[in-house]
Nucleic acid binder design. Sequence first.
DNA 1: TTGGAATGTCAACAACACTGACGTATGTTG
DNA 2: CAACATACGTCAGTGTTGTTGACATTCCAA
Lengths: 170, 170
Amino acid sequence: MSDMRAPSPYSGESLLFLTDEQLRQGIEAMFFAYRGFTADPDRILSDMAYGRAHHRAIHFINRAPGTTVNNLLNILGVTKQSLNRVLRTLIEDGLVQSLVGKVDKRERHLYLTDKGKTLEQTLSDAQRARMRSAFRDAGPDAVAGFRTVLEAMMDTEMQRAYTRLKETGQ
Amino acid sequence: MSDMRAPSPYSGESLLFLTDEQLRQGIEAMFFAYRGFTADPDRILSDMAYGRAHHRAIHFINRAPGTTVNNLLNILGVTKQSLNRVLRTLIEDGLVQSLVGKVDKRERHLYLTDKGKTLEQTLSDAQRARMRSAFRDAGPDAVAGFRTVLEAMMDTEMQRAYTRLKETGQ
DNA sequence: TTGGAATGTCAACAACACTGACGTATGTTG
DNA sequence: CAACATACGTCAGTGTTGTTGACATTCCAA
């Protein structure tokens, strides 16, 4: 249903920012920005035998060392077969170490090796550089708004995962 | 390369929002939010024989009726072979009409049929609903910041494409 | 008019997601 | 202990979406 009406006197505020045209611009901004967001790591990875899926795995293993396969599955939102293909190559290539759990031996705990950490640094440096530049250009207030809107765009499960990681980090 | 220094008295402002931790949270917010952003259309499309690429093509053909294949190529940032496969199925299924250019017969001008417009409505209604909800929860100031940061995250080419579309819309 | 550039199409292949089925080791519970 | 559940890995098959390479058509300019 289209929402193209004029600014209604809804609680005294203008709702012009909720017109279909504004929403469409938001959608398109999201589309183009995500391309920029992944462009630099993608470029680096294209030279190796890795892709975006490897980057995501490496990122979250670095973020939560010792995480289990199941936990990673929930964060990434893919099937175990899909993740397993990626993890297998990363383990074979010596970027990720998989250790049998001590308390629960069914679990595998995942860690980056030094080699893995090196690649993680390379990738996240590139991605952070762009994010830093965008943040700096936009300023702290814009950044706060950026994060508020993104968080409101997530499903509740993702919000939980995101918040948990945020608190883990500090 | 890390930028982990304490808030410097840079022009009197705190630069705490540019710490690595803040940047990483921005990166993760982007990752999770994009999943939410595409979730609803993806769900709808999974029942048909279409995917996200079809959605993107339909979106931009709707946005700029009569656009050429080449123009669409630049906006979407994929190879023409990749786009062609998508366009072929859309044309076969009667969602998109391809007309040989009158001035330049090499060009094909693309239009949505009524059937195509119907699907476009269904998809964009779903996507807009989530965006509207997120925008409403976040408020107009946050939305402005959101768009500022996203724009700063794009490559200059994308910024141009984005701005051109924005002006086209109104 | 001829050669090169632009536009679009066809074919083959790679990356990465999915479903479904199965095996193994381990933990938990009646 | 037996039965069931959980965590992980794997094999096989399929679909979408990206890639390169080769090629036909059309336009334009030397």
